[in-house]
């Protein structure tokens, strides 16, 4: 209990100090301090832990340095001067000992953190408080929602393989339900991130990475690519809508009625370099099974979606040419 309270206090203190720095920032701007799911919360937990431990050594050191600087200034005739003192075994043991201790403690937390938020198998999702919430929502961890994420230059395609639907630059997931992502890219590297829900995972062409998330609050969150991928990179943003299970079913049914279908051929057309300005969403139905593998296979065979000369300088001209 005490530990929990201390913990909460430290957390509040850390949050408050960062908020102070950005007094002019609108509320809710510090998304990393406002997690909406267990994975993001765990990541914040380790952040605060690290900062508190590090401050525990940095603050005293800073005070020591400042005191030395003030007290031993040349003009202070009262300070003792010893122009030969340059060694002390005791102090040396301490100055090596403290950093070694701190690093040992932090290494332990690093080890714990790596497994808790491991993108492939986040153990935090197996913790009792998380599984209990999932069970309450009626979505056992054994039946997660699958989403295949395919990035192109410069759009997001979220494929729901079991539902045979896909959406562009808009991710919709049910609340309190584990979501398992498989990610790949048709062109260059990207990184998948929704700060309030889950940290980054690299998306690499020809390779398949995994990510998992669980959102515990309804709402719309901001997602984006965190890895530079060319001139359209700044526009690689998407909305992540966390909705109720019923709403999710309704949405899926709506998308399934979309007249646009996503076949392998349609994908090749879709993946041409495109600047998707201001997160315009599009929906596809009847997604061809195995699209994800098709994309990876094509990349392995050497398929590239060449960036045209001058695409970046003449962005608007390029957009009109494509559309």
């Amino acid at each position: 209990m005490v530990r929990n309270n201390l913990w909460r206090a430290a957390r509040a203190l850390a949050a408050a100090s960062v908020l102070l720095l950005s007094g002019c920032v609108r509320k809710g701007g510090l998304v990393l301090l406002d997690p909406k799911g267990p994975i993001a919360a765990a990541e914040l937990h380790f952040t605060i832990l690290d900062v508190v431990i590090m401050l525990g050594i940095i603050v005293p050191t800073a005070i020591l340095v400042i005191w030395f600087m003030w007290h031993y200034r040349a003009t202070n005739r009262k300070a003792r001067y010893d122009g030969r003192w340059d060694h002390s075994y005791g102090i040396e043991v301490v100055v090596w000992g403290i950093p070694i201790l701190v690093v040992a403690v932090l290494s332990y937390f690093s080890y714990k953190g790596i497994f808790e938020v491991d993108p492939y198998n986040p153990r935090i999702l197996d913790k009792p408080h998380v599984t209990a919430a999932t069970a309450r929502a009626g979505a056992p961890a054994s039946r997660p929602v699958d989403v295949n994420v395919i990035t192109t230059d410069w759009q997001w395609l979220f494929v729901y393989p079991k539902l045979h639907i896909a959406s562009v630059d808009k991710l919709v997931v049910p609340v309190n339900t584990p979501v398992r992502f498989r990610l790949t890219s048709a062109t260059v590297d990207n990184a998948f991130m929704i700060p309030q829900l889950v940290g980054q995972i690299e998306i690499m062409p020809g390779m398949r990475t995994k990510q998992a998330l669980l959102a515990s609050h309804l709402g719309t969150y901001r997602g984006f690519s965190a890895e530079m991928s060319g001139p359209g990179f700044a526009w690689m943003q998407f909305h992540a809508d966390v909705v109720s299970a019923a709403h999710f079913r309704k949405w899926a049914a709506m998308v399934a009625k979309s007249p646009d279908h996503m076949t392998d051929g349609a994908f090749d057309a879709f993946a041409q370099p495109t600047f998707n300005l201001h997160e315009k969403s599009r929906y596809f139905s009847q997604v061809q099974p195995g699209l994800f593998r098709y994309v990876i296979h094509q990349v392995h065979m050497g398929k590239v979606f060449t960036t045209p000369l001058g695409a970046g300088e003449l962005m608007t001209a390029h957009m009109t040419r494509v559309q």
Binding site: Y120, M204, G206, M207, R208, T209, K210, R293, I296, H297, H300, M301
Partner: peptide, 10 residues
């Protein structure tokens, strides 16, 4: 082991 899908010519 974690990113390559087997049997895809890699």
């Amino acid at each position: 082991a974690r990113t390559m899908i087997h049997g895809m010519g890699m």
